[in-house]
């Protein structure tokens, strides 16, 4: 395992296909996350985000394709990799008979880099009931405990499936801060799935847009914001609409809205300069809605 080399990929998926009964959840997904990056995986509910995460980590055997974590095949991870990997599922169910503190004390023994003071501090800060068994905690409380568990193990790879839903704004900001600093300073590689785009915009270095089992877009977040825009053409100019557009929508009044991309010289298509044409920069959420709607 050569972590120092620049081409090292802690998370890698190649050609993943997976179906549930008649429904194709993944339709040929390739994904790579370089070390120290935070990849935000965006998609609507049912886009295949959780299936992709489970296949990436070897928790599900895909119909086709291959995945790797920290250089090992996802379906045959050794303990050495498992102790450096933290995965927080959407609906944690482990150890229902233990209290949060008991669970964290127990698990801490299995992780060589366990940060016990951090775990204790977060239990208080995130208001986890001290004496109640996990089975009696709310789903939000259980997910918060799992997030503490994931962070306290000081992982090299951190995978969070829709973590934001269980958190109030203060706890959410705490989590984003931890994610950002771990990635930027400790070189932790993070994959963070969500349909709440604004959470990603603070911390993500890259985004991947998963739509109907395919990755439609995977690039640097800053690039995404600078490279795409929405072009509105008045009815008299719709025939000049650029052919290469990520999405196009004819409006009821005869006008047209398109998502366009800068060319290799950084220029917008010529149609953007037509009289009456309107070019709007797109926030990430707008881009998501324009492409995935």
């Amino acid at each position: 395992m050569s972590e120092a080399s620049s081409g090292y990929l802690p998370l890698l998926a190649r050609g993943l296909w997976h179906s549930y009964a008649q429904h194709a959840a993944l339709r040929g997904v390739d994904l790579q996350v370089p070390q120290g990056r935070v990849l935000g995986l965006i998609g609507r509910n049912g886009a295949g985000k959780s299936t992709l995460i489970r296949a990436l980590l070897g928790l599900l055997v895909p119909n086709k394709g291959y995945a790797e974590v920290l250089g090992e095949p996802a379906l045959q991870l050794t303990d050495r990799v498992k102790e450096r990997l933290a995965y927080v599922p959407q609906q944690p169910e482990a150890f229902p008979w233990l209290t949060a503190e008991q669970m964290l004390t127990l698990l801490g023994r299995f992780f060589p880099h366990w940060d016990a003071p951090f775990a204790r501090e977060m239990l208080t800060r995130w208001q986890i009931p001290a004496t109640r068994p996990l089975a009696k905690c709310s789903p939000g409380e259980r997910q918060r405990v799992e997030l503490i568990r994931g962070l306290a193990s000081r992982p090299q790879v951190l995978v969070l499936d829709e973590p934001a839903a269980a958190l109030d704004p203060v706890a959410r900001r705490d989590l984003l801060r931890e994610v950002a600093l771990r990635a930027g300073e400790a070189g932790c590689t993070v994959l963070f799935s969500t349909h709440i785009v604004s959470d990603l915009e603070r911390v993500a270095s890259q985004i991947a847009l998963l739509h109907e089992g395919r990755v439609l877009l995977h690039c640097d977040l800053d690039d995404t914001k600078e490279r795409y825009a929405r072009l509105w053409l008045p009815p008299r100019h719709t025939s000049a609409a650029p052919v290469a557009a990520l999405s196009r929508r004819a409006q009821a009044d005869g006008s047209m809205t398109l998502v366009i991309e800068r060319d290799s010289h950084g220029e917008w298509p010529l149609a953007a300069q037509l009289p009456g044409a309107r070019l709007d920069t797109l926030a990430l959420e707008d881009l998501f809605v324009e492409i995935a709607a």
Partner: peptide, 9 residues
């Protein structure tokens, strides 16, 4: 980065 919960990079 910590004050704004943004990526240090």
């Amino acid at each position: 980065a910590a004050a704004h919960a943004i990526n240090p990079m």
